[in-house]
Design a protein around this nucleic acid. Structure first.
Length: 581
RNA sequence: GCGCCCGUAGCUCAGCAGGAUAGAGCACCAGAUUCCUAAUCUGGGGGCCAUGGGUUCGAAUCCCGUCGGGCGCACCA
């Protein structure tokens, strides 16, 4: 047992060892799958400290009855140090009771591990590439990007904590038509900066004032030489310059949320390096790309429709409606064509890929997953690739929907929202819902610093702990493990909850669901606030009991560790743990 | 029409790789503050887990159908 082995992990091991012993004794046939065996705290604490369903899930394949098997298992587990009871309940649950010392050891483990309590080797050091945000570099971040940004960032942090090596990646779509439009929009702003009357921004170009500084910069730098020049002379240059400015702006926006990517991959560079051609060749070799005709659009066929031959990916083999072109008729790459090459490239340097996408891209999941599976599978090295879809956020102000239109330039920028409600509130709010459920984001509710807002509830718990420790120190008390045996049932209940953090981290990482951390913190804060208030009615249950230094030291020790745990959890979410409120 | 996501208390949502009597907040009702931070806590009412089947020792959870809501169905990104 290493120091890092937490109580729950240790007991999962004890149950496994007990099953081994039963196998050795012939009570249990060897080789049964134990995938369904769980060791977890029972929902109802009166059932004990830990419960396992092992007897129920193994009884049938073992050809025995659950209660008999549970009885045998109980016999083994009663030998484990710290176990004070092993009872069979219901259809064959085995409920274990642990002595207080076992839980107090876990409290010491939190103290010993500090910020690393909950950190796990679960990921085995494998590399996970998390791609998130990847907003088009055509303007500042708006609220539509926010949820995916926060979820992706928290997930990346969580995976690191759970023992993966993580790359946080942003895919810059700097090669498509939209960045040509950006370049033309900037060209107008450039002329404007030189004092030329432009008379409004034409339909189809980006009207946002955020392009004005770029226009000025280019005017200062290049003077008037591109005013009347053909676009072949300035288009690429302006595109590159504008994208650079937009990305700088986006990086600033992300910084407001505490988000920093490790890698920014450029679609233009990817294409310049010939990566899509490589991918196409591989797919053709496996007959997954062929030259064919695209079906006419369903329903009304446009006047100018004529069948053209295009290189198509056989996505119908993977459940798609039709095969998808990887090049356009002018020979340039479609988004999909470049994107599959991009994912293939990512797969070369990672053991697993996770993409965070907006739900509006759900329709393209099948084809990209199919393409990546084909490309990596062709080399005999399949790289797991998950796409996590983040559902839409409806912005509300006092219950009324906030309309956003990018064309009209009326979208709500992320920077505005963060300025209005704060980074911590934005992040926590985005993480208090599972990502695949739609959510409302109401400014009025979200800024309310009250019980209705879980961020403050959790932060308040931390602030109370800090305050108590300050007060204790002022009165000459320091946290100390020496009197831990004085802690009673109410204190141990807090420890039991705290002890679940390590397994929660692993479960959340495995499911790629950082929101579970937020809910755990809420529960932990609730348990702490509840315990705190016991002291209102019963002064002898307060953290600081002036006449009993030993008890006070133990309680402050408990408070210190709960505070540490709140910090560890909030760190995973990227939310500050405030010391005063 | 097809694909993906969602449907749990009046409202907003949890429900941990099927597990024991379905949870929390808001709202409503009744309480707690000479006392470590009341931005807190305690208690109460309120549920055919949309619906109909299936799988099994056991289903809110897995599978199929139906209904309802959202998103998407381009050589766009």
């Amino acid at each position: 047992m290493t120091q890092n082995t937490t109580l729950h992990a240790a007991f999962a091991g004890h149950v496994a060892a007990a099953l081994d012993a039963l196998e050795a004794a012939g009570t249990l046939p060897a080789g049964l799958s134990r995938n369904a065996v769980a060791v977890e705290p029972p929902r109802d604490p009166s059932h004990g400290d830990l419960a396992t369903n092992a007897a129920m899930v193994l009884a049938k394949p073992a050809g025995t009855n659950p209660r008999a098997l549970a009885e045998a298992l109980a016999g083994e587990l009663r030998k484990v140090p710290g176990v004070t009871g092993a009872e069979i309940a219901g259809p064959g649950f085995l409920n274990l009771r642990l002595d207080a010392a076992a839980w107090l050891d876990e409290l010491r483990a939190i103290a010993a591990l500090g910020a690393d309590y909950g950190r796990s080797g679960f990921g085995g050091g494998t590399t996970v590439n998390v791609e998130y945000v990847s907003a088009n570099p055509t303007g500042p971040m708006h609220m539509g990007h926010c949820r995916g940004a926060v979820v992706g960032d928290a997930l990346a942090t969580l995976l690191e904590f759970a023992g993966h090596k993580v790359t946080r990646e942003y895919y810059v779509n700097d090669a498509g038509a939209q960045v040509q439009v950006l370049a033309r929009s900037v060209h107008l702003r450039y002329k404007e900066a030189l004092g030329i009357e432009i008379g409004g921004i034409p339909e189809g170009l980006y009207p946002g004032a955020y392009l004005v500084p770029t226009g000025h910069r280019l005017a200062t730098h290049y003077g008037s030489r591109f005013v009347d020049a053909p676009d072949s002379e300035w288009l690429d240059l302006f595109r590159t310059e504008a994208v650079a400015d937009m990305m700088a702006m986006i990086r600033d926006d992300l910084a407001l949320l505490g988000i920093k990517h490790d890698v920014f991959s450029s679609e233009a560079e990817l294409q310049a390096a010939g990566k899509p051609e490589e991918a196409e060749a591989m797919l053709r070799a496996h007959d997954l790309v062929y030259d064919g005709h695209l079906e006419a659009p369903k329903g009304k066929t446009p006047e100018d429709w004529e069948p053209v031959e295009l290189p198509l990916f056989r996505s119908t083999k993977f459940g798609d409606d039709q095969d998808r072109p990887i090049r356009k008729s002018d020979g340039s790459w479609t988004y999909f064509g470049a994107d599959l090459a991009y994912h293939y490239q990512k797969a070369a340097s990672a053991d697993a890929l996770v993409d965070i996408w907006g739900a509006d891209h759900a329709g393209t999941v099948k084809r990209i997953k199919a393409a990546v599976a084909a490309l990596t599978g062709a080399e005999g090295r399949t790289v797991p690739f998950e796409v996590k879809l983040v559902q839409m956020v409806q912005l509300l102000r006092d219950g009324e929907p906030v309309k956003m239109s990018k064309r009209a330039g009326t979208f709500v920028t992320l920077a505005d929202v963060v300025r209005e409600v704060g980074k911590d509130v934005v992040r926590f709010t985005m993480l208090t819902r599972k990502p695949e459920a739609q959510m409302d984001f109401d400014f009025a509710k979200v800024v309310e610093a009250s019980k209705d807002n879980p961020v403050f509830y959790v932060q308040y718990a931390h602030a109370r702990i800090c305050s108590t420790l300050r007060k204790g120190a002022a009165e000459g008390f320091a946290p100390s493990p020496e009197g831990l045996e004085l802690l009673g049932e109410e204190e141990l209940a807090l420890v039991r909850l705290a002890a679940q953090f390590p397994r929660l981290v692993e479960a959340a990482a495995a499911a790629r669901e950082p929101h579970r951390v937020a809910f755990f913190l809420y529960d932990l804060a609730a348990a702490f606030h509840g315990y705190w208030n016991v002291g209102n009615d019963r002064p002898e249950k307060r953290f600081i009991v002036a006449q009993d230094a030993r008890l006070t030291g133990a309680r402050l020790y408990l408070a210190t560790q709960i505070g540490q745990l709140v910090r560890n959890g909030l760190a995973l979410l990227g939310v500050e743990a405030v010391e005063e409120m």
